[in-house]
Amino acid sequence: MIKIIDLKKSFGAKKVLDGVNLEIEKGKITVIIGRSGEGKSVLIKHIIGLLRPDSGKIIFEDMELTAMKERDFNEVLKRFGMLFQSAALFDSMTVAGNVGFPLKEHTDLNDEDILKTVKEKLRRVGLVDVEDMTPAELSGGMKKRVGLARAIVMDPEIVLFDEPTTGQDPIMSDSVADLILETQRALKTTYIIISHDIALTLKVADKVAMLHEGRIIEEGTPEEMRRNPNPILRQFLEGRASGPIKVY
């Protein structure tokens, strides 16, 4: 569905992506893992067009996203949703205003229909009677859920998650993992998740890819990754400080 071909990106002298190649399958959950600062966020920002690569391509259904003009790209963006690490809810709006924002911007639905859809999406992520609350009144976990409701409100074909469990306690992280699984199974949407949370990765992924030093060094199903002898992958999956990955 999405092909990332030889993607390269540097910031000044620092090479962040050094030839990333990856295929994202339709209707599956792909988790891209890697240490903090390895460029996972940079990679996901390229997929959604927030960053432009120095070289390389991202192909989505025969369209080269990296070469599209703004107007055409905006049409493609309507088929994407994204859950940010901080949820990125608009402070100036209520929960209903946040979740209904894409509908207000891109559809002709009236306020009543928008509210109906908003309530349905909030219910899907396990929230009721929160429409009139402001983001400041929500807990971290609730913010993530509202962020996910906003990401799926336009029924996108692809949803990207930037570190969905960062800052969550283990129980809340597991609840987020369940939420990801439930919504993906129900909507059959393609999910792309970047994370360094091994428990989440092994629980939800159909495919795992490890980003290290600007490249995808290993990819496969969670089971294949568990059995993979690559010492870098092993060190990361086992969470060891000693090994080929240097700790700074």
């Binding site: 920002k45 963006l77 994204m82």
Partner: peptide, 18 residues
Amino acid sequence: GTMRVTEQIDALFTMAVN
């Protein structure tokens, strides 16, 4: 500035809102 550092401006972009 707050919207920028809390990724709200990026969120607008990803929702196809300039």
